[in-house]
Structures are given as structure tokens and as C-alpha cells.
């Protein structure tokens, strides 16, 4: 099933073009990695696909209906996004924050039910934050906040997950465990993932497809095996890169 499709997409960021007339589609069961140099517009692309900013031109459809025809609440049950960073101006506990992920499922007057709370506690256990449920969010470390953001996504439970550098601030162990968790859950839901990554080596490990944003007019996309070559990566980052295969794992490293 076609989950998310962008046709003839043109996005600009200020006066700078992010992409011109590009196509992108996400099918059920696909895990996409998005790679590109700093400032190329990976975040702008993700926000546009989430319906949070308008493209200059082009068509975006979610499950064969125009993205703009969904209301925000309905959309939030289908599509979730984890932002690059979070802000907290006012005090709030970890549990209260996770409960925000249930907002799209509750009517305006409704209170969170006992089920909502137990769902949230399960998600906190999955990201290893259950013992901190009553802590204030502003006392958490960068990595713990990241895990909190992923816990919100887990309780929001959308079929399409858009992740903006999900492994930021995470230690090596949590990078592996949490990406695996999100990927497995998405596959069980028959959904799809698009994630912007900085670490090229996470792509062969977790992704089925990859999009290389070289510049506004040339995107290279396709299955990981076809696209993740040293030639393509060297072109992308303008840096010479070597490849290493060890124990069935492919690693790229800069020279």
C-alpha cells in the first residue's frame, strides 16, 4: 500500500531551494533513511511531508488522499514526527509529557483514562524511563529527553513515523535498541518510517531504502543495496570514503 507520496515536489527554505520537481514515495513495510550534507534541507523535507509547512508546489498524498484534506487530529493518528530537539518553557513531569501522545485519540472534554496511563507507563518502560515517570522534564539529560520524545511517538502509535535525527544524544546501546524497537513496531503495524540520519552506518543496519539529497535537482533514491555505494556517498559528502565489510556488517568510514 502507498502510505505517503510526494509528486513534483518543490520546496524552498527562504530563498534557497531544497528540492525542485522531485518525487518520493513510501510504501508499507519500507524503512527509509535520508542522508545529506548540513543545511541541504533534510528537516524542511520532513516537515513538509508531515504537513507542517507548505511546499511551493507539488502534491503530497497520505493513503491516496491529499495531505491537506486531513484535519490535524485525524492526521496525528496516522502520521507522527519526532523533532530534532524539544523545548520546555513550563514545568511538567515525564508522565504528563508522554500523555500528550494520546491527545489525538481523546475528545476535547475527555480525561486520560487508566488505560492511557498504563499505555504510557509501558512506553516509558520500553525506553527505560519508567523509574523517572514523576521527574520534571527539565531535570533530564539530553539522551533521556530523546528517549522521552520516542516514548511519545510510541503512545501516539502512528502508521507513518518521521524521525529527525532520532539517535541524537543517544548512547550506542540505546541507539540500537530504540531504532530496532521503532522499526519492529512499524513493521507490525504495516507502516513505514522515514528517518533523517547523520550516521551513514545506521542506514545498512536499519533501512530498506535510502534517499541521498545531493542538491535540489538531483536526488538519488532506491533500495539500500543499490544506492549505498562509496561512489554515491563520496559525491554526497564531497569527502573520500572507504567501505569495510566485517562479520556481515557493512561499514563506511571517512578517509
Amino acid at each position: 500500500m502507498r502510505l505517503l507520496e510526494a509528486l513534483a515536489l518543490t520546496i524552498t527554505n527562504g530563498s534557497k531551494p531544497v528540492c525542485r520537481n522531485q518525487n518520493f514515495h513510501l510504501q508499507a513495510g519500507e524503512i527509509w533513511g535520508v542522508l545529506g550534507p548540513n543545511g541541504i534541507g533534510k528537516t524542511s523535507l520532513l516537515h513538509t511531508l508531515a504537513g507542517l509547512r507548505k511546499p511551493l508546489s507539488g502534491q503530497i498524498t497520505l493513503m491516496d488522499k491529499p495531505l491537506a484534506s486531513y484535519d490535524r487530529k485525524q492526521l496525528a493518528t496516522q502520521l507522527g514526527i519526532v523533532f530534532q530537539d524539544s523545548q520546555d518553557t513550563f514545568p511538567s513531569t515525564v508522565l504528563e509529557t508522554v500523555l500528550m501522545g494520546r491527545h489525538p485519540y481523546l475528545s476535547e472534554w475527555a480525561w486520560e483514562s487508566v488505560e492511557d496511563i498504563s499505555l504510557c507507563m509501558t512506553a516509558l518502560e520500553q525506553v527505560a524511563l519508567a523509574t523517572l515517570a514523576q521527574r520534571q522534564v527539565n531535570t533530564l539529560s539530553g539522551g533521556e529527553r530523546r528517549r522521552l520524545a520516542l516514548a511519545i511517538l510510541l503512545v501516539q502509535n502512528p502508521s507513518i513515523c518521521l524521525l529527525d535525527e532520532p539517535t541524537n544524544h543517544l548512547d550506542l546501546h540505546h541507539q540500537m535498541v530504540l531504532l530496532e524497537l521503532i522499526v519492529q513496531k512499524t513493521l507490525r503495524n504495516n507502516g513505514g518510517v522515514v528517518m533523517v540520519l547523520q550516521d551513514v552506518n545506521l542506514v545498512p543496519r536499519f533501512c530498506t531504502h535510502v534517499l541521498l539529497m545531493h542538491n535540489a535537482d538531483s536526488w538519488i533514491s532506491g533500495p539500500v543495496a543499490d544506492v549505498m555505494t562509496t561512489t554515491n556517498l563520496q559525491l554526497l559528502y564531497q569527502h573520500s570514503i572507504r567501505k569495510l565489510v566485517d562479520n556481515g556488517v557493512t561499514l563506511f568510514y571517512p578517509e
Partner: peptide, 22 residues
């Protein structure tokens, strides 16, 4: 009626929009 949406807005426009707030 809007109180829960306001909780979300307090965490940022984008975050609120992504979780279903107009």
C-alpha cells in the same frame, strides 16, 4: 475545552501541530 490543546501549545507550535492541535 481547549485546555489540553493549550498544554500541547506550551511545548511549541510545531509539536502541538504534530500531535493534532489546530
Amino acid at each position: 475545552v481547549y485546555a489540553r490543546s493549550m498544554n500541547l501549545l506550551a511545548t511549541g507550535d510545531l509539536n502541538a501541530a504534530a500531535l493534532g492541535v489546530n
